[in-house]
Amino acid sequence: MTAPIETTGAEAETPPEAVLAGVKKADIEGRSLSRIAWTRFKRDKLAVAGGVVVILLVLMAVLAKPIEWAFGLDPNQFHQDLIDPALLAPKGSWGGMSWSHPLGVEPQYGRDMLARIIEGSWVSLLVAGGATLLSVIIGTVLGVVAGYYGGWVDSAISRLMDTFLAFPLLLFAIAISASVQDGFFGFNGLSLRIGVLIFVIGFFSWPYIGRIVRAQTMSLARREFVEAATSLGARGPYILFRELLPNLVAPILVYSTLIIPTNILFEAALSFLGVGIAPPQASWGGMLSNAVDLYTADPQFMFVPGLAIFITVLAFNLLGDGLRDALDPRSK
C-alpha cells in the first residue's frame, strides 16, 4: 500500500483563487466553434479584404437606385455633345473622363460609365445570387436524402444528377433564353429575362452541390449522434433537417461563395452572346458585348466592365477560400 503524500500546512491551505492569480478570464474562457472560425478568418488578410469588397458590392447593388438619384446619375441618358461625330469616340483623353464622368462615357452613345456600372451591379448580383440560392436548395435537399437513405433512393438521385450533368448547359441556356424573349405565360421584359436566367443557371447546376452534400451526408450518417437519435426513436425527416443539415452548413456556405462568381461570369457570357439582359438595361456582360462592337472607337470601353467583373469574381473567390480554411476543423 502506498503511503499518502504529506503536504505542508501552507500548501494544504492555499485557496484555488491564489493559483489563478493574475490570469485573465479571457485566457481560460472556453470558445465556441463560431468564435474559433472567426479568429481563423481574421488572420487571413486577403479573405478579410475580399469580404469587405463583397459587402461593398452588395451595398452598391442594393442601393443602386438611391445612389443614382442622390448623385443625379442616369445610366440611359445620352451625352452626344461629349462624342466626336467623326470618330464616334469620346472627346478628350481616357475615354472622356472628367469630374462629371469619373469613368468616362460610352463611345457612340455618350452614356455615363459609372452610372451603368452601378446599374449593372444589381442585375449581375441578383441573377448570380438567385441562381446560387436555387441550386443550393435543390442540391442540398436531394443530396441529404440520397446520402442518408441510400439504396434505390441514392441510385435514382445519382442517375438524375448524371443526367443533368450531361446537358450542354451553355447551349441549353441559349436555346431557352432565346425562345422566351418575347414573353412567357404573361411575363415579359426585364423581369422575365432575369427569371429565366436564374432558372436556367440554378436549375441545371444543382448536381454540383448535390454531390458534395451527398458525400458529406454519407460520412455523417455513421456518426454517433445520428445513431443516438435513431435509438431514441427519431424518424428520417427529423434526423435529416435537425441532426444532419446543421452539420452541413460549413461546406454549403463555402460552396455558395465559390459558385457565385461562376454564375456572374455565366450571366455575363449570356448577355455577351445577346440572350441575356436586353438593352437598354445595363449589365456588365452587355457592356462587354457593346465594347466589342465599339472597340475601334475606344478600346478603353472594354476595360471598365471587365475590371468590375474581375474585382467581383476575385473578391468572392478570396472570401470563399478564407471561409473554407476558417471552417475546416483540421486547419491550424
Rank of each mutant, 00 (worst) to 15 (best):
H79P: 00
S98C: 12
W122F: 11
S100F: 06
L133P: 00
W122E: 05
R111Q: 02
S121N: 02
I67K: 07
W94V: 13
A156N: 09
I117Y: 00
I117S: 00
H79C: 08
W94K: 14
L59D: 01
G95W: 02
E106T: 05
G129R: 00
I83F: 03
W152D: 06
G129E: 10
G150F: 04
I67V: 15
E68N: 10
L57C: 06
Y149A: 14
A115Y: 00
L88T: 01
L125H: 05
T140P: 08
G110P: 04
V153S: 08
R159W: 11
P102G: 10
I83W: 01
A86S: 13
G129W: 01
L126I: 02
V58L: 15
A128L: 08
H101V: 10
P66M: 07
D44A: 13
L142W: 03
A70P: 08
V144W: 01
S98E: 05
G110M: 05
A115V: 03
E68Q: 14
Y148A: 08
S100E: 14
P66C: 11
L134A: 06
L114A: 07
T140M: 06
I118W: 03
L63P: 04
V136G: 02
L56E: 04
V153M: 11
D154E: 15
T140W: 03
I137K: 02
L160W: 10
H101P: 01
H101T: 03
G120Y: 03
G95H: 05
E106C: 05
A86K: 13
I83V: 11
T140L: 06
V136L: 15
A49D: 07
G72N: 05
G96N: 08
D44G: 11
A70G: 06
D162Q: 08
G50E: 12
T163A: 15
I117L: 12
Y148R: 05
W122R: 15
V144A: 14
W152K: 08
W122M: 13
V127W: 13
D84V: 10
L59H: 03
A89R: 07
V153F: 14
L63I: 08
I83A: 07
V153L: 14
W94I: 07
I83C: 01
P102T: 06
T163S: 12
G147Q: 08
N76A: 12
A70M: 15
T132L: 06
W152Q: 09
D84Q: 06
L46T: 12
I67D: 10
Q77A: 13
I117P: 01
A146V: 15
L134F: 05
F78N: 11
V145M: 07
W99L: 15
L133K: 03
L87K: 14
P85D: 01
W69T: 11
D81N: 12
V53R: 03
S135T: 14
L56G: 13
I138M: 09
L82F: 10
L114V: 12
I157K: 12
R43Q: 12
A146F: 11
I157E: 07
V153E: 05
A70V: 14
A128H: 01
V145D: 05
S158E: 09
L133R: 00
G110E: 02
V145S: 04
N76V: 13
D74H: 02
L46Y: 09
E119P: 00
G139Y: 02
V141G: 11
S100G: 14
T132G: 05
G150I: 08
P85N: 07
P85V: 09
Q77S: 04
V62H: 02
R116Q: 10
G95E: 02
G72F: 11
Y149I: 15
G120W: 04
G150Q: 05
